[in-house]
Design a protein around this nucleic acid. Structure first.
Lengths: 206, 206
DNA sequence: CTACTAACATACAGGCTGTATGTATGCAAC
DNA sequence: GTTGCATACATACAGCCTGTATGTTAGTAG
């Protein structure tokens, strides 16, 4: 047991306080929403005062960004843990998408990452975060599939973004009670539709 | 010219005031965001007081819902106007998606309908609105394509939702400065990938 | 040991939301 | 038409929240 008011270095204090604030905020932001959660409530849950919060974060939005960042990293880590390294390109994509949908079932994650995140931080900021974490894996999987000729060649960034958007919407729908099987079926169909079985019909450019 | 304080029926007054409030709110919500727009600013722009607002709408969120509803209807109408009635199923889908992307270029529409809308009203409410307007056309187009055997049979609701999600993300990306051509190419590839050229490889259900 | 700085806590100002209350106008019945 | 009620507002108020400014304690460098 450690006695109260142990002597701690400033670095330790900062780290601990920041972690406490992020953890408390994460809990409240996922239970309720960003707008419905006030900073007085957050600091009370973290056991500090608003002074500490505004010392460590520029504003409420910056604290939110830190929470989103951490949660996106957690999702990415769950996916990487679930998807074995070397598979056929298509199987790796499917394993990854299943892992993503599973990870997004954690309570409140969809609202945090898919609803409040884009609205509060903007799509650009969310893209930047996603590309540093979860989307990286997806993008690499797509590049690998194209290189292995298991997928038609397409602009990679756009394809990554659009598939990610479909995954996101699927996660939201499943959480809202839709048939997970239906959505999984369609996701697989969209992915398999990109296989190069036949020469693609000449696309009328205009 | 009509003299001031003309005698108007209550129904006319209500309709005019509601329309003024919605128009003023729409302008501000699209120029800034929902969170950054205060009710004092809205009523000032509409030329009434906050009393009128809270007489006609339950709260700020209800006014926002009315704005979103109207804007979604406007988008749907632009699409229907742009897409000729009888085409081959695939061409109709492409024309519709182009029309959607064009309609979403109106200033502030993406934030209103794709960012703030889901965050403030929730995905369920936005789905309900979308299904009453824009998504109806998409869904019918998909059903027609499947019936004409121009598209593999898939769960229609899930497919509609996921394609709509992809369109939405494309609209956001294009507004953020991404290559519209790239996104259009990928969207077409996703749609064409659903054509039944070959028997689909046996999907391992698990 | 001294001086400076980081890590907080406390106090304050401004703004916003929603509600309660007051007032004038349309409207319906007699 | 006037009496009475409901509708359409305007005004006033209470509570909360955010961000900042200021004060205090604890670490840390010289």
């Amino acid at each position: 047991m450690q006695q109260k008011s142990v002597r701690r270095s400033n670095r330790d204090r900062t780290e601990a306080t920041r972690a406490d604030l992020i953890a408390a905020a994460r809990k409240l932001f996922t239970e309720k929403s960003y707008a419905e959660t006030g900073t007085p409530e957050i600091v009370a849950a973290a056991g500090v005062t608003r002074g500490a919060l505004y010392h460590h974060f520029a504003d409420k939005q910056a604290l939110f960004a830190a929470v989103v960042e951490q949660e996106a990293a957690a999702v990415a880590e769950e996916i990487e843990r679930a998807s074995p390294p070397s598979l056929f390109a298509r199987d790796a994509l499917i394993a990854g998408s299943d892992a993503y949908l599973a990870a997004m079932r954690a309570r409140g994650r969809t609202r945090l990452l898919l609803l409040d995140g884009p609205a509060v931080l903007g799509r650009a900021a969310m893209d930047e975060i996603d590309n540093r974490h979860g989307n990286r894996t997806l993008r690499e999987g797509l590049v690998a599939a194209m290189r292995a000729q298991a997928m038609v060649k397409l602009p990679v960034d756009a394809l990554t973004a659009l598939l990610a958007a479909a995954f996101d919407r699927a996660a939201l729908a499943v959480e809202a009670g839709a048939s997970a099987d239906d959505y999984r079926t369609v996701l697989m169909a969209l992915i398999d539709g990109l296989s190069p079985h036949q020469a693609p019909r000449p696309a009328r450019t205009r």
